[in-house]
Design a protein around this nucleic acid. Structure first.
Lengths: 214, 214
DNA sequence: GTCTATAGCTGGATAGAC
DNA sequence: GTCTATCCAGCTATAGAC
């Protein structure tokens, strides 16, 4: 009964479990000591092993960073791709923004690693970057459903969201000073990008018929 | 004829000149190797002295960072406070934004040091921080002249600008992809924050009586 | 796979001659 | 003030016993 592949699975499971523990420790470490402050000795101590053992699971320190980057990008893409509660284009857009912001402020070091390239000497591998591109495509789609299709408006949107997140993390960590501006920011953005929407009842308003706050 | 104070001036001039050279080298270093990558040995080599000599001018590595922070904040405040070409409130606001963005993208490491607190274990001294607060007050004043006085709108404005700068630096360094969105961003922002401006000629329009583009 | 031991290097900071 | 010499701590990474 297929003993060898089973044994292989055990080994791989154990191996993945150990990698998992190291990565978890790495996330804890960078959140406590800063992204650039990660050290293999400290990481090993945190996980309960010795530094050389880490090399049984990762080729180098940058390999750990790359694994963290890939994990962050994948998690980000998955979370953004989960089913949305509403079918209304604007509500979906808002939900996406809230997910993005929650993802970013939930882990400042992860945000720094994924979106601000600030690590000296580290570049993520190309494959690690793919999920982030996929997620951006999702944002493009949600904007398009709101009638916003210009490429520069996608750029403007990302800048707006990034700015809110950045100010929140930098100047009010743990608070909500800029988080409270999210809805208003979306109002402002859509009012600008879809200015000629509903003078007559014609197109594009399939799902925009309730609420209408203000 | 006051020989002693003159001599003192000489000494101080020489001393300041040496400090200046070290700081210039430090700026070059962080722009080439990253803000966190500054090392005293490399800095000394760059300046043409030895590492211990640096301690004749700065107490520690963090003292260098603090001097850089203070210099950045002062330069920023000075540049924002220079006379503005126009007297039109909106044009002044735009000019301020352009100065801010130019200041930020002109030196990415300086932007990182001044506006994103990402250096592990470094906190700027309180006095170093004063000029940045003064500059923010200037922004508040320029916004007020455009009729935007709500505190949360100042926060929204800073988030918008920070986002543009951040995206530009992170995703298109040396380019202008997000810089081209500045004017449109201001349009969007003002359209949102001063929506009920001129239905009747009544209040709040003290300095807003020419131009009126759109 | 995990350990001890250690190589090899670089970092910040200090001592003391000149 | 500037140097040489040095201390001490930290780092990544490797060698080799078990």
């Amino acid at each position: 009964m297929l003993k060898i592949p089973q044994s292989t699975d055990w080994r791989e499971a154990r191996r993945n479990s150990a990698r998992r523990a190291i990565l978890d420790g790495a996330w804890d470490a960078v959140n406590e000591e800063g992204l650039a402050g990660l050290s293999l000795r400290g990481l090993a101590r945190r996980v309960g092993i010795t530094a050389p053992t880490i090399y049984a699971y990762f080729d180098s320190k940058n390999a750990i960073y790359d694994a963290m980057f890939a994990e962050a990008a994948t998690t980000f893409a998955e979370r953004m791709a989960e089913p949305y509660d509403s079918k209304d284009a604007r509500e979906v857009l808002t939900e996406g923004v809230n997910r993005f912001v929650a993802f970013c402020i939930g882990n400042a070091a992860r945000y720094q690693l994924l979106f601000q390239r600030t690590l000296p000497g580290f570049e993520p591998s190309a494959e690690s970057y793919v999920p982030a591109v996929v997620a951006l495509e999702g944002t493009r789609g949600r904007l398009a459903r709101c009638g916003v299709t210009a490429a520069r408006h996608l750029d403007l949107f990302t800048a707006l969201l990034t700015g809110l997140v950045d100010q929140q993390i930098s100047n009010d960590p743990g608070g909500d000073r800029w988080l409270l501006l999210i809805d208003e920011s979306i109002d402002m953005f859509l009012a600008h990008c879809q200015p000629t929407l509903p003078p007559t009842e014609n197109h594009q308003r399939t799902t925009l018929t309730r609420g209408e706050q203000s």
